[in-house]
Simulated scan of single mutants.
Amino acid sequence: MATVRRRTLKALAGLIVFIFFTSFVLNYSHIAVTTTWSPKQMVIELSENFKKLMTYSHRPCTCAHCLSQRGVSPWFDERFNWSMQPLLTAQNAVLEDDTYSWWLRLQREKRPSDLNDTVKMLFQVVPGHVDPLLEKKPWGCRRCAVVGNSGNLRESSYGSQIDNHDFVLRMNKAPTAGFEVDVGSKTTHHLLYPESFRELAENVSMVLVPFKTLDLEWVVSATTTGTISHTYVPVPAKIKVKKDRILIYHPAFIKYVFDSWLQGHGRYPSTGILSVIFSLHICDEVDLYGFGADSKGNWHHYWENNPSAGAFRKTGVHDGDFESVVTATLASINKIRIFKGR
């Protein structure tokens, strides 16, 4: 024990000497030209540098502003659960009873298969560990763009700006081909469910958002036998996504978004808000594009002309208005930025 203490004291003393010497060299070279060096000034500089070092060591990233920084907003701190894991793995696949019961009710599956058996089959096919790229590092600054599907992206010219992010998250059937100037061409992670599936480029990771047990079974089938071709609508029997590029959104994380962030509004969260809260847990800075209505108040997709645009807001499944309040509040406390387009 005494040896450990002596080593700790030596390390601390060495750190202080290093800071003092660095401060001396930098400050003396700056002020010697104009004034005489002052020991008092050096002590003040040493104190300030030490404070900066201690502050930096407790920051969750190296960005100018880290969105997961505690103590900035009580509203955010009440909702953001640092321990929640966004992705399902072989190590965290056991659901609490209340979470499992809630999840089963989302799409009212009548005779669901046993979840444990399904998960075992799932992780025999796809990786049962978290994608290392998604693990946040305290010395990094991961900038992420979450690209929604709103018509306000038309004529926005956000493409190059979006592609300049480290991660670009898209969702559901959103295309990029033909819309690159406004929506960009880069995608690192694409969130979807069986009924909203679209083929992805080889370098894109698919993040399945499971709303029912059948969705997990579909992943197994679609990458092997191709026996499942219908859920409540026709779905692709086979997909070309590489198995090691398939990630699974955690059902418990869906409930966390519903309980903590949506406060029970709607029946369950939309893929849009699920993507936003997902990004808060894997990114250091988050920019939102393609969310909300266009400048004329229409809610529609940028790739289609929909005469009944906006009808989905009142389906009773998702509460689009409350989800907009959540994202607007996040922007108002500088946790995210929202680019509203046209």
Rank of each mutant, 00 (worst) to 15 (best):
A2Q: 08
G14T: 07
V17I: 14
V17N: 00
F21M: 12
F24C: 10
L26N: 07
T34I: 09
M42E: 14
N49Y: 11
F50W: 10
M54N: 09
C61Y: 03
T62F: 09
C63L: 04
A64W: 01
H65Y: 05
C66N: 07
S68R: 05
S68Y: 00
S73Q: 03
S83R: 13
P86Q: 05
L87Q: 02
L88T: 05
S101I: 13
L104Y: 06
N116V: 12
D117L: 15
D117Q: 14
V125C: 15
H129I: 10
V130A: 13
L133N: 10
G140Q: 14
A145F: 04
V146S: 04
G151W: 01
S156N: 07
I162P: 03
N164V: 02
K186S: 02
E199G: 03
L208M: 14
H250A: 06
A252I: 02
K255T: 05
Y256F: 12
Y256D: 10
L262H: 08
G266T: 06
R267K: 15
P269W: 08
S270G: 15
S275C: 14
I277K: 03
I282V: 15
Y289L: 12
G290E: 11
G292L: 12
A293F: 03
W299S: 05
N306A: 04
T315A: 07
D319A: 07
G320L: 15
F322A: 03
T329C: 01
I333R: 02
N334P: 00
N334A: 08
I336F: 10
I336Y: 09
